[in-house]
Nucleic acid binder design. Sequence first.
DNA 1: TTGTAGGCGTTATCAC
DNA 2: GTGATAACGCCTACAA
Lengths: 335, 335
Amino acid sequence: MNIYDISQKAGVSIATVSRVINKNPNVREKTKQKVLQVIRENGYTPNVFARGLGHKSMQTVGILCTDSSDLYLAQAVYFLERELRLREYNSILCCTGYKLKDKKRSLELLLTKQTDALILIGSSFIEEKETNSQYIRDAAGKVPVMLLNGHMEAENIYSILCDDYNAIHDAVSKLLENGKKDTLFLYRALTYSGNQKRMGYEDAYKKFGLPVNKDLIQLCNGDVNHTKEFLTMLAEKGIYFDGVISVDDQLAIGAIKYAKKFHIAIPEQLEIIGYNNSILGTCCEPELTTIDNKVEAICMTTTATLMSVLGGKNIPSKTMLSADLITRDTTYTKP
Amino acid sequence: MNIYDISQKAGVSIATVSRVINKNPNVREKTKQKVLQVIRENGYTPNVFARGLGHKSMQTVGILCTDSSDLYLAQAVYFLERELRLREYNSILCCTGYKLKDKKRSLELLLTKQTDALILIGSSFIEEKETNSQYIRDAAGKVPVMLLNGHMEAENIYSILCDDYNAIHDAVSKLLENGKKDTLFLYRALTYSGNQKRMGYEDAYKKFGLPVNKDLIQLCNGDVNHTKEFLTMLAEKGIYFDGVISVDDQLAIGAIKYAKKFHIAIPEQLEIIGYNNSILGTCCEPELTTIDNKVEAICMTTTATLMSVLGGKNIPSKTMLSADLITRDTTYTKP
DNA sequence: TTGTAGGCGTTATCAC
DNA sequence: GTGATAACGCCTACAA
């Protein structure tokens, strides 16, 4: 069933059918109705390929993320897809994994599919070595690239991110005000946002005129129970801490498990703050104080920005949203 | 940059370039190398639209789910995308929400995109009224439809599911053996798999010659804290239970919270079993005994089955995988 | 082994 | 308002 079949059955030319499909006003109402009816009767839908051959757009954007089963990334994918669909765009999802080579390959593959834009979720796409991020710049030569929670200065690249630096800075400051001078900072990787968080942590100490203890900055890449063991090991090594702030909620819950194992009182002896405000925070006990980094808002802003870019508007290349602290039971409630 | 440009620069015809691209062996090695070099130098990639116009395939499958931010569905999406990508298929994700009208619309939209197949995750796509599922049958008229954890008998529809019936049946039997005669069954909706679970629950009671108490079968659709309140309310109503089995882990964790609130001993006074073996199960305390319904295996089977279908092979229309009970601390450990 | 030409289903540009 | 017809970029007989 193609446009020729329809034109025949409706007794008009394919040009007229095309006009009807594309809502071109230059068609007599009666003709239009006739064509629409034939289209409905035959359940005809225009072929996207043929259509794409013409205007080179398939109303599709590529979403890249390292791992869509990750709690945070899954949410981002969900919100992005929803916002895009609302604007009649489809989403091609591509999980790249963490290896540079795979990320490059996936991105190239996606470009091949003629997506109208690319959205990269998470700062893990920005490599430490500047030159290793060249592939993103290359992609931006073909379609707009949106960076979600990452940042990169280049033509046709737009960053939308949460103010991780200040979020951590303020949270750590609060702990310091509570007299907790030895807060452990747990992170998973030195991505862009990982770095921002770390800087926020260090600067809070500096602001209070306190030295930064490198022993309190620890890389921990595992699940809840691994984190528990990890902290146990740190304690055995003689590293003392009376606070924990982490780059996601899972690590923080590991800290809760550690505390309970050794009957360390929360929050009296140990205050704990997570990140992402995920569902996990209400599953543990005590419930977790966590930083809400506004995934939904970021995704909505990203989509809105993208639409402006595609519409040819002049748009700021960097947008920053501030985070909120969700106070629950692993820290002292605000006075 | 198209195939003509390349053919000119390489001093050959477009047919030769096309052969090289498509790995047709009938090209002299030297010619092939020359062409490949020109392709590389110019960063040329064939246009998918033009390609699709011919083949009618874009190596793309549509994945539909109600809500990809749901823990379980997110995992399924992740595994499916991974398996498909391994086989050089891209995934178009489409979250439909729970309304029939929206599900229909999304499905039709996706068909429009000429996907090679459709994968529907979760039995919420199978409507209670048989006629309301007609849209799926219609879709199956155009492309193969894979039903993940749902079931429907029809041409070109393939179901891959977990044996929810026996999973619940066996788990409840275990509770009954432990002397827990009043197990609460918490569910979220009467989908296909919801029904299977419920039947498994009821049949376990029947097997033990015990009556099924309708008060113990409860619909609860909320988060952890809502579930806690809900159980509190049930108890206040005088409904007694010494076991809880639920259709997902969140509900089960709600039960844990309820028990702790009233100092009910787990598992002595209340045994609790969740479903899905999600990450949540290790975040709570005590850690949750839960049923592992093998998402990854289901997704891998689905993809493999799909490939066979696309390859024209004769394939069983229903595949069932068995679940495992992951015993943790909310039930008695096996002797 | 290589090249030529027709077709895939639309959209857009002309004439009428 | 409407209808021919030429792109769009690729694949694939069929010819050479």
